[in-house]
């Protein structure tokens, strides 16, 4: 019962957040003249200025702000975010949709590796506090935390693609790409690792995996420190609590005390931090995809930024804001499930 009320309250809080996210993007749009904003809805460069004025009128781009917002949000809700000039004049929403499966694939492979590695190292570090392994883990995670994403990506590429000639950058090798884009390969999900299996062509999956390993490693290196740090400090806190002493006095082995009793409690702060992890990943994806020539939404956004493609960058920011808000909502609800205490509040 408490649980339901909590979820309802949290979902209701989500509405003002959504409003805020759209309002902020709308506010940023106001930095541009109506003419500039109008050109976001026109393919290519218009030869006739009349075209622009017609768009301004049609889309109410010079109306009072609240009216403008109304028409803008209606268009956004119907999926019209303007034209992405940096992506060959296709609509921004289409460009985003095309990129999402690739980015999703990357993130889905990264999250478990970040979380499991982070939790494992965090526990190890806390249990061996102030011993050599603690110092080593901490130094390495701080190093990862301090690495510029593009720099670590370039180093990885140079070593594994350049030096060892493993594969080349991109999502697939040329050969696999040819097969994937051929008409008799059905792209059910546009996630290559899965489509490979669905089409019964396992080598496509393996090829895709080979290409995704390094980007995943890069994202892991730069984000794992966050989890390590939180896990370490929450583990230290839990290990000093009374119930740990009780558990030891019961005669439980250290393994059970750490991995059953302390870990479960120490994981709670890790759940709350996974919102921040999502933010880190969404950011890391932009640069990692760019360097690895991995064509997801991050790649799209980076190229749009380079060409000052306004509707694409803002459309991407809006999308990310929404994804991030939903992620935070999920985190909060998960948190309530894991920690029985929060439900009573």
């Amino acid at each position: 019962m408490g649980m339901k009320a909590y979820i309802v309250r949290r979902v209701l809080l989500f509405i003002p957040t959504l409003l805020g996210v759209t309002l902020l993007i709308f506010a940023i749009l106001q930095f541009f003249t109506p003419e500039e904003r109008a050109s976001a809805y026109i393919r290519g460069t218009p030869k006739n200025p009349d075209v622009i004025y017609r768009v301004i009128e049609k889309y109410h781009l010079d109306a009072p702000l609240h009216i403008q917002y109304y028409f803008w949000i209606t268009r956004v809700l119907s999926g019209d975010l303007g034209i992405a000039k940096s992506a060959g004049n296709i609509p921004v929403s289409v460009a985003l949709l095309k990129g999402i499966p690739a980015t999703f694939e990357l993130v889905i492979f990264s999250i478990p590796s970040i979380i499991f590695l982070g939790i494992y190292l965090g526990i190890k570090s806390a249990v061996n506090r102030d011993k050599a392994s603690d110092h080593i883990i901490r130094i390495f995670s701080i190093i990862g935390w301090s690495l510029p994403t593009f720099w670590s990506a370039l180093i990885l590429i140079s070593i594994f693609y350049g030096g060892l000639g493993w594969v080349s950058a991109g999502r697939l090798s040329n050969e696999a790409y040819g097969v994937v884009t051929s008409p008799n390969f059905i792209r059910y999900t546009r996630i290559n690792t899965i489509d490979g299996i669905l089409n019964g062509q396992l080598w496509i999956t393996i090829d895709a995996l080979k290409h995704i390993v390094l980007p995943v490693i890069n994202l892991t290196i730069i984000s794992v420190a966050l989890i390590v740090r939180v896990m370490r400090s929450s583990m230290l806190e839990e290990l000093s609590k009374g119930y740990i002493l009780t558990a030891k006095a019961k005669g439980l082995s250290n393994d059970v005390v750490i991995n059953k009793h302390a870990k479960r409690n120490a994981l709670i702060p890790v759940v709350t931090i996974s919102g921040v992890l999502t933010a880190g990943l969404l950011t890391g994806v932009v640069i990692t995809e760019t360097v690895f020539n991995y064509k997801g939404i991050g790649y799209f956004a980076a190229h749009a930024a380079l060409q000052m493609d306004i509707p694409s960058v803002l459309g991407f920011a809006l999308f990310v804001g929404l994804v991030y808000s939903v992620a935070n909502l999920i985190v909060d609800i998960t948190y309530a499930y894991i920690d029985p205490r929060i439900r009573v509040e």
Partner: peptide, 25 residues
């Protein structure tokens, strides 16, 4: 606080990216 909430709703780099595009390079 609602203001801060809205800004918190975006990952920092991505909001900064949008802002720089708006302000000019």
């Amino acid at each position: 606080m609602r203001f801060t909430d809205i800004i918190y709703a975006f990952p920092g780099l991505i909001l900064a990216m949008a802002l720089v595009v708006a302000f000019g390079r």
